[in-house]
Design a protein around this nucleic acid. Sequence first.
DNA 1: ACCTGAACACCGTTCAAGT
DNA 2: ACCTGAACACCGTTCAAGT
Lengths: 210, 210
Amino acid sequence: MATKWGDREARRVDILEAGRRLLTDRGYAALQMRDVAKGAGISPGTVYTYFATKEALYAALYAARLAEFADKVEPLCAECDDAEDLFVAMCTEYLEMYRVYGQELNIWAVLAGEVELEREVGGQLLVAAARIYDLVLRTVDRLRIAESTAAEVDPGLVVTMLWAVMTGLADHFTSVRHYLHAHKWEETVRFTARTFTAGLRSPGEQERQA
Amino acid sequence: MATKWGDREARRVDILEAGRRLLTDRGYAALQMRDVAKGAGISPGTVYTYFATKEALYAALYAARLAEFADKVEPLCAECDDAEDLFVAMCTEYLEMYRVYGQELNIWAVLAGEVELEREVGGQLLVAAARIYDLVLRTVDRLRIAESTAAEVDPGLVVTMLWAVMTGLADHFTSVRHYLHAHKWEETVRFTARTFTAGLRSPGEQERQA
DNA sequence: ACCTGAACACCGTTCAAGT
DNA sequence: ACCTGAACACCGTTCAAGT
């Protein structure tokens, strides 16, 4: 760390970087404030003049990662015209993020104000989440994914379902770690995407809607 | 506690009951070994002669709850002939369990041997999980849910997908707690069930399979 | 102002001592 | 044998003291 005494901006980056490294290399349990301080080349007390709690530090890391996720998903949504392929690609990006950030902080709890954060970090989380939500919403529209059901189904409902399914798949596959899996990630996600898109386009939908 | 000195069986039940109460009343964060001991009318050290770790205690509670879930789902599977309704009912039962036991212990990690448990508790978890898996598998068969795809799709894949979707939905709705929800549980689950059953029965499946 | 690091609080866990 | 409870280990957090 070449960060000079009093350079708060650089110091903040040092802390975030130290935290990010611990998290990605060794998981949430290894994200300990003493080690964050050590990694940033400062004392434990100083970390707390930048982040009020460990949770706030974690939220800041998560916000950055979520923005990165949005950056990766945006071109996918723009380029891909096949809903099934797009879902598979998005899920796979999501899995990478979920592997590191999935278990611990709950973004919705943050957005709901259950967790106290500095306004800035909370705002970053909100912006990133809203960006992703909008992105998916517009893509669902563009690909007419809810086509046959469009007359009655709120596209937001489709997005909510998609998000939940992604989370479920990611959770399942990050927890099991290769062991008792009869099915591989690619196979399961592909099958889910296929089922899902077929279901949304099924002509049977409209009549059952009534 | 009327449990007598030396009655290990009753003592064990006291501990489990104290833990269960803390967990259901005030959540995982409130499951603290000192309070478990207090609730069971013993000293902290004694708890550790019954359960090697807090995680082992939690696993025992989870195993019992999982068996209870299987008990509730079994008649549902037997009585219900509509896949969509069944999925909704199962998800709703699952949500109740997930609300309390969802976040913390990972059953698959346990089954994979990543968490050390007494053989008995590990076995209980395994038995309960296998029971549920089999139950769903047989029901998928019975209702011919994977009908149009049966020639090529492993029914186990359907079960894996269903499990992941249930988890995703439960996770979404336990985390948010009424706040920023545009859609209610019943609405989202119903829509998801409809989409998936339609997708699994879609005649378009077979050709895309190839 | 910014930073240090010893100290406090909390909670899982252990173990020498009691019955 | 079974049980007690003080003590240890660990980690998030605070704060009086340093520069």
